[in-house]
Structure formats: C-alpha cells, structure tokens
Design a binder for these strands. Sequence first.
DNA 1: TGATTTAAGTGACCGAGGTCAGTGAAATAA
DNA 2: TTATTTCACTGACCTCGGTCACTTAAATCA
Lengths: 199, 199
Amino acid sequence: MITERQKKALETRQKLLDTALKLFAKRGFEHVSISQITTTCGVSKGTFYTHFATKYDIVLEKFHEFDTHYIDAAKKIDATLNPADKILALYDEQMHYLVNVVGKDIMRTVYTAAMTNQVEHVHYLIHPQRTIFELIRMYLQEGVEQGIFREDIVFENIEKMVQRAMRANVYDWLIHTEDFDLKSEMHLFTKTLLDGMRK
Amino acid sequence: MITERQKKALETRQKLLDTALKLFAKRGFEHVSISQITTTCGVSKGTFYTHFATKYDIVLEKFHEFDTHYIDAAKKIDATLNPADKILALYDEQMHYLVNVVGKDIMRTVYTAAMTNQVEHVHYLIHPQRTIFELIRMYLQEGVEQGIFREDIVFENIEKMVQRAMRANVYDWLIHTEDFDLKSEMHLFTKTLLDGMRK
DNA sequence: TGATTTAAGTGACCGAGGTCAGTGAAATAA
DNA sequence: TTATTTCACTGACCTCGGTCACTTAAATCA
C-alpha cells in the first residue's frame, strides 16, 4: 500500500523529471541548472537531490526508458532475413530513433557519464542485459547455428565487437558537428565488420 | 626578437603546464583544481586563464605533443609487411603507448573534451592532419595500389572506418573499469574490420 | 488520542571552473 | 629622458553542482 506522503513524493519526483527534460530540450543539458529546474517546480534545490543522485541521472533514466523501444523495433524486422541483415535492420531502426527522437544532447550526456561517473554497478552502456544487446545476441546465435561465422573467433568476441561497432558510430556522430549521417555510417561500418566475421 | 616580458610570460606558462601535469599524474585530472595549480606556482588564478582557455587545454596540449611519438613508432615497422599488417603493427604500438605512457586519465579527458567543447576548429581527434592518420592513409594507399581492398567501398570510407576502429576500442577501454586489454581488443577488432574490406 | 519516529523538503553553505575591471611595470613613442 | 601604451598578472566575484544539519508534517506506536 502507498501512503499519502509517498504519493506526494512521487508527484514531486515526476514533476522534476518532466520539467528538467522540457528545459533540457529547450536550452540543452549544459545550459540548464538545477536551480532553474527546482525554482520552475516551486521546490528547493535540496529536493532535487532527495530524488536524483546527480544531474546526469535524469537523462540516464530517460535513456533507460527509451531502450524499451527496441522491442517494438525488433518486431518489425523481417524474420526471413539472414541474421547479419537482421542486425543491420535493427541498427538502422535504432539510429533513426537516436537521431530523430532521442537526440544528440541526451546521447552526449550518456556517453560522457559512462566515462566520467565512477560506476556504481556495470554501466548501462555495456550492460549485457540491455534490451538491444539481448536482441543482438539472439540474432548472432542464429548466425552461429546456421554456421555463417568464422570459427576462429569465439562467440563472446563476436558479440563484443558488434556492440562496440554501435558505440563507435554513435561516438563519432557525437564528436562531429555536422556532415555525419549516423544511419548510413553505422550501416556501412557494421556491414563491413560482419563481413570480416564471415566464413 | 623576444622581449623580457614575453620571456617571463613563457616561463610562467611552462611552469603552470609542468605543475598541472605533475598534479594530474599524482591525484588525477578531476581531483586537481585550478587554484591548487596556481597557488603551487605562486601566481593568481586569473593568470592560468591568460595562458590556457580551459582546464582541458593543458591535457590537450600534452596529448598533441604525444602524437609525435608515432613517427618513431612507424620507423620500427617492418617494411616488408603487407599494408593491413602494418596498420595492425602501428595500432599495437600505439595502444601499448596509450596504456603505459599516456594513461587512462589523460585519454578520458581528451575523449570527453571532444564531445563537450564546442569545436573552435575541427577537433584534433578527427583532424585529418593528425600524424597517425597520415601514416594510416599512407598504408591504406599502399593497399589500394596492391589491389587488396574491395572496390565497392570508396577510399575515404575505408580510411574513416579504420580511424573509427581506433576510437571505438579506446572508448570502450575508457568505460571499462577493469578486465579490458586494449592492445588485444584493438588488434582483433581492427583485423576483423580490415578482413571485411578485403577482396 | 497523544507521544514518538520517519522522511520529504529546506536553504545556507562549500569548493569548483571561469570572468573581468583594474594594476603596474615593461615596451614603445615623443 | 619623459609620456604613453601595452599586456601579464591580480583577486574579488559569478554561477554552478552538490552537501547537510535542520524543519515539519505525515505515519506509526503506545
């Protein structure tokens, strides 16, 4: 059972989250201060920290929520495709989503936090239970069963490299100010890497 | 001709640089404040900013200096190797240097700054005139002349992907807290990618 | 019901990176 | 030599993310 107090606290938390994300979208993560968020919400600065450990945490929570998107994305993928093409199709869909829905600002925050924040557990960006990684593992296992991959590379390495290809292209997208088509760059890069893994 | 004043200024600058790097090495970049650096040097805080635009700039300058290392590294590479193996040999040497000389702390700073700092020019991490990129371009051109690469990928894309492979592995090294052998991870990843580019 | 405990919320405070009007001695102009 | 300009250097000051002893009202206990 939830008490009146817990209900109020959850409302405050949600209000902070919504306000913060709205302000981030309008002015960019770096240009929004905690004080701006809390005064907009009509609470004190300290209240922010009863609900979130750091400024980053708001973005990380949203990012985590975004990740459920891939379950829907996976459903759209043609089951008759070969496993390598399934991964490419998933990445195509994912990159479209990152560029058009999530956006560079949130992704930059996530990719910076992964390097900076002393990890309290395994960081989400490389967390093996991450939805997208479980999908990729599934496709790769299909590929192994069909015998399309070289046998001198162990499965964990195949998996790690495919995941790394994703971060590689996202990172390069983030450090380029313009003229970087994430979707096509990711496609070519991952396709080439997968070709290198094939028999 | 250099004036007395300019000489003094350069001395101050050099002293700030040396002190900062010594403190960074001892306590880590994030745990050293500008005030600590300037009081150790016996100058005011403002002086730091007459010589450097941001705290990052000290590290970026050092990183730039490190890059000359690759000229020596390239000389050691066996000229009879095929171009793909030359790139692998260069990366092996480079990763050894990053892990044992440059260190995670400086690299983390560089990789964060690349995402954060609004680029005044093209950022050094992707600057085409960067020493290591010119070396790679040279080897890849050798490879093209020998006809070892697929012809459906244009040269600029081959070049971009090989560079990206480097950042991919360095980034993954930076977000892992342990159990990440940069040298061997880089080797396998780049080798696989290069295999995917071959005829 | 009244006494006690709990925890959401408060805001003064801290040290950080970075700014800028002002200073004074060196460089240059007269 | 003297007047003027230049610029390395100063340090009080700004805002920031984050902390913590404290307040207060709701939840629980007796």
